[in-house]
Amino acid sequence: MKLDEKEIAGIIKEISGSDVKKCMKCGKCSATCPAYGEMKFHPHQFVTMVARGKIDELLKDETVTRCLSCFACVERCPRGVEPANVVAAVRVLAEREQGGSNFVPDEVPALIIADKEIPQQALVSAFRRYRK
């Protein structure tokens, strides 16, 4: 069953727990984002696009995985919107689609061989955040 954009936006609001309508469009999330330059859509755009139900483009965007989940936007948002939670919810929905992940566990052994210092924590994170 295929959900339409508005329905997916509803799920994102639900699982992110974020009230995107509280956004006053100040842009502080994007002002503080250390991954701004790496992401096609910026935190403030995520919030606005989810509020408007424009989800398809967000779901297709691979750079969503560049969000560091550093929660600087969550901490500094004057409206309590929690943009990082919105980004995470979009990413989770993309991962839940069959083949929606752009990072698969098979890639991991090569990473370990390439750099022996990589901590387990990063590898586990990789498994957790990028699924088949």
């Binding site: 100040c26 842009g27 502080k28 999330c29 994007s30 002002a31 503080t32 984002c33 600087a72 500094r76």
Partner: peptide, 14 residues
């Protein structure tokens, strides 16, 4: 306009 103050729509994060 007259004093050339640069108004930037947005916020400062850090």
């Amino acid at each position: 306009e007259q004093y050339d103050v640069d108004y930037i729509k947005g916020q400062v994060g850090k």
